[in-house]
Write a protein that binds this DNA or RNA. Structure first.
Lengths: 148, 148
DNA sequence: ATAACTGCAAAACGTTTGCGTGTAT
DNA sequence: ATACACGCAAACGTTTTGCAGTTAT
């Protein structure tokens, strides 16, 4: 009904897009806000959220789903997956795997009209592995909300 | 260091566990709270959250990860996946698929110590498919926060 | 000219926590 | 008897929203 409304290219949007394209770190809205402030000191967090939402709706960027706590964003539009470190929260990219056969199977089993899937691996990143090293092995430290 | 502390079976906990086992709907904390109130009118939402957290830590239940907005809970401990309706938010169970080969491959590629993965399909459930029927085809209605 | 965008601040939302009381063990 | 759990309400972190002024088209 309402076709994609006009999308203006404003300084804030350009900056968000550039910041997102310049990193593979899948930043959160407030990380983005912090880094944008260097060039646009008056940009507000609300604007960052608003633009991330709009640009994501227009498929200029993507939101990283299932990445744990805060919402994260990604400028890589090509299909791929993610792996999240359960210790430090870091999110890295993972080569896409072809799971379309699974979707087909599922379509029959469930009656759903299957549109896609989200696949997020969980693990411990090399840095955290090294840090934990031989320190402890069975400890349930539960820390998983931190930032990179 | 701190072994699993004693876990008392209180009326609230029993009720939460029973409610969770009685449904496959993966309720949110406040849905659970609403339904608990029928039998325990004075139970508080804070208690529901506290108990879901404790019981999940003790592996009596699981939290459904990557299911979109609100956190959802599941009494089915056996490995399986989920499919979420992007129209109404409903979450259903999906047969487990063996993706361990993928985890192995990933372990070498990424350097991560891979612990597991979360796989959530997205689609349109039969009910919503029927409701939308032939109404519209390209509409971007964006509604996806509703409850079943 | 005008619809889209912005900063700001307040509100909304889901979740967690502190505190004093109650209860399962 | 005592550690654990509770209800309540306030606090928290994240995200959304209303409004009045600004800017890209």
């Amino acid at each position: 009904m309402n076709g994609p409304e006009e999308l203006r290219m404003t300084p804030a949007r350009r900056a968000i897009l550039e910041a997102l394209e310049a990193t593979h770190c899948h930043p959160t809205a407030d990380e983005l806000h912090d880094s944008l402030r260097k060039s646009l000191p008056r940009v507000s967090l609300g604007t960052v959220y608003r633009n991330l939402e709009v640009m994501s709706r227009h498929r200029l960027i993507r939101t990283v789903e299932g990445a744990g706590g805060q919402r994260r964003y990604d400028a890589v539009l090509a299909p791929h997956h993610h792996i999240r470190c359960v210790r430090c929260g870091r999110v890295d990219d993972v080569e896409p795997a072809d799971l379309s056969w699974l979707e087909g199977k599922l379509k029959e089993e469930s009656g759903y009209d299957v549109l896609g899937h989200v696949l997020v691996f969980e693990g411990i990143c090399p840095a955290c592995s090294a840090a934990e090293g031989g320190k402890e092995e069975g400890g349930d430290n539960g820390a998983q909300g931190n930032e990179n």
